[in-house]
């Protein structure tokens, strides 16, 4: 039997919650460890690996020049790169930084020591280096993470569903949040999480990014009909999706 693929986990600007999702997977983690050889994973082990990686699993977004250099090096050393979690795949909540002038945000975070810290607008990993697989979500939905890992190990494609969270939500027969008088981003957010939040009584925050071809005008009409403040929706959208603006440039 050929040796198990060497897999390393890395983190950039993030809360490390997605690593926790993996570490907390329970019994299924044993099956995963039967299929791969984890050579680096800062949250759960001290060992480091000085050779190339078969698969690099990257959490977090790229927010300074040091991170740019580091992710480029990881990319060079990895046959396959998986970006996982919203910070890595779409910029996530770190993208809110891009709402402010860089200087202002640097001072508010580092105060007098600001001059010691460089900063750049928040980027998703895929906006800096080539990414082979995306596992979106804040945090990642563990079944989807496993699905993508298997695709990576087999060298086949994984398509993030390009339809709305509403599709999975309807299949789960949830009462629509709009009927409950709540504002939910399900109609424009990409599915693949099995409507995890709504199944548990919460609204969709749009953490998986937008569908590729949203009907902006139609969505605005719906929002107006439900008497929802457009700024509120804009803010909700930007909470996770601010970095999409970088793609337009």
């Amino acid at each position: 039997m050929s040796p198990k693929p060497k897999v390393a986990f890395f983190d950039f600007a993030c809360c490390e919650g997605c690593q926790l999702q993996v570490a907390n997977m329970g019994e299924e983690l044993l099956d995963i460890l039967g299929a791969i050889d984890v050579v680096e994973f800062r949250e759960v082990m001290s060992e480091k690996w000085d050779q190339n990686y078969d698969v690099a699993v990257v959490e977090g977004s790229i927010t300074d020049n040091h991170a740019v250099e580091r992710i480029k090096k990881i990319r060079e050393r990895s046959k396959v790169l998986i970006a996982y979690g919203s910070c890595a795949t779409i910029g996530g909540v770190n993208g809110m930084k891009n709402n402010f002038p860089l200087e202002e945000i640097r001072k508010s975070v580092y105060g007098e020591s600001a001059k010691f810290f460089d900063t750049i607008p928040t980027h998703a990993v895929g906006q800096v280096v080539k990414v082979d697989y995306f596992v979106t979500g804040c945090p990642v939905y563990p079944p989807e993470f496993v699905k993508v890992l298997k695709c990576a190990l087999m060298g086949i494609n994984y398509e993030v569903p390009d339809y709305a969270v509403c599709v999975e939500c309807k299949l789960n027969e949830n009462v629509c949040m709009y009927e409950r008088g709540l504002t939910c981003l399900g109609p424009v957010t990409r599915a693949g999480c099995n409507s995890w939040c709504i199944n548990n009584g919460n609204i969709c925050y749009g953490c998986r990014g937008m569908v590729s071809n949203p009907n902006i005008k139609g969505a605005q009409d719906v929002i107006a009909r439900y008497n929802i403040d457009m700024d509120l929706v804009q803010n909700k959208m930007n909470m996770y999706n601010k970095c999409r603006e970088l793609n337009k440039k």
């Binding site: 599709v167 309807k170 299949l171 109609p187 009409d221 719906v222």
Partner: peptide
Amino acid sequence: GDKCLACGNCTNV
């Protein structure tokens, strides 16, 4: 088409 959000609700139900 202008109104439709392509959420798939109509067919799923």
